[in-house]
């Protein structure tokens, strides 16, 4: 009898332990207690600088992050995702020191929500190009060729930054585009071009460059008028605002700019006229 009572109680007791463990965990991840958590014993110097950057920046930021750590001794924690995702994470209370979305409207939204410090600096810009599968099976030569409905054309949806720019560029060039698909992200456009499912897609120069040999790039004259700018800002609630500022300075420095240029970005207006 006693034994069976105990075996019956045991799972319940275990559960209580588990439940109380659960109940505690939200506290330990609450904003204030995080700095004093186990992996960061020294809040002033030991905590990594948290950088929220657009997915398109990830590859180019990796070497710069390394350089930053060598210079300052501070570790950098880089979170890369779509700009809208990053913004909604910040809105929901995610902690970061630096925010670098892939377009200015996203930064304006962050500004409107008082998430960032008032000064944002443009670190780089990007222009729209035509990406075609290697070999150019659709024999695309200019933007005007894309008006031909015979070609499978893929764009970003107008709601997505790259789609907005595509519309502006097409309008400036006086070309009526008839897309076969309006994708949700530039990655999806590139995916359709890489697999040669589409004859052409409009993407940013850096995306086309990243795709390597699978994709050929055709420049669009009118696109220079509609550069897409990458702004960077220190978060209003940054725990390490000075270090965050230094990180942005590094991006604007000569070595930062040359790294960005190598990845296909155009230089920031402040850095070189």
């Amino acid at each position: 009898m006693r034994r069976s009572a105990r075996t019956r109680l045991l799972p319940g007791a275990l559960l209580l332990v588990l439940l109380s463990g659960c109940a505690n965990s939200p506290d330990s991840s609450a904003p204030d207690s995080r700095a004093s958590d186990s992996d960061t014993p020294d809040a002033e110097t030991g905590q990594p600088l948290r950088v929220f950057a657009a997915a398109s920046l990830q590859q180019v930021l990796d070497p710069l992050v390394q350089e930053f750590t060598e210079r300052t001794g501070a570790q950098v924690q880089l979170s890369s995702a779509g700009s809208a995702d990053l913004l909604s994470q910040l809105e929901q209370g995610a902690e970061a020191d630096v925010f670098i979305p892939a377009d200015e409207p996203t930064m304006e939204r962050a500004q409107d929500a008082s998430l960032i410090q008032p000064t944002a600096s443009v670190i780089a810009s990007n222009t729209l190009v035509i990406a075609v599968p290697s070999g150019n099976p659709g024999r695309i030569g200019t933007l005007a060729d894309l008006a031909d409905p015979e070609h499978a054309l893929v764009l970003c949806a107008p709601q997505v930054p790259c789609g907005t720019v595509a519309q502006q560029v097409a309008q400036a060039a006086g070309v009526a585009l008839a897309p076969d698909s309006e994708e949700l992200a530039v990655t999806d456009v590139l995916g359709k071009v890489r697999s040669a499912e589409a004859d052409a897609g409009l993407v940013y120069s850096t995306d086309a460059l990243r795709a390597g040999a699978e994709v050929e790039t055709i420049l669009i004259e009118e696109a220079a008028e509609f550069p897409n700018r990458y702004p960077a800002a220190v978060l209003a609630e940054a725990e390490q605002p000075e270090l965050a500022g230094e990180f942005i300075e590094l991006l604007l420095s000569e070595s930062g700019q040359s790294e960005l240029e190598q990845a296909g970005f155009s230089p920031a207006p402040e850095a070189s006229g």
Partner: peptide
């Protein structure tokens, strides 16, 4: 769907 079919209203 997004990877295979695309996205057109």
């Amino acid at each position: 769907t997004i990877a295979f079919a695309g996205s057109l209203q």
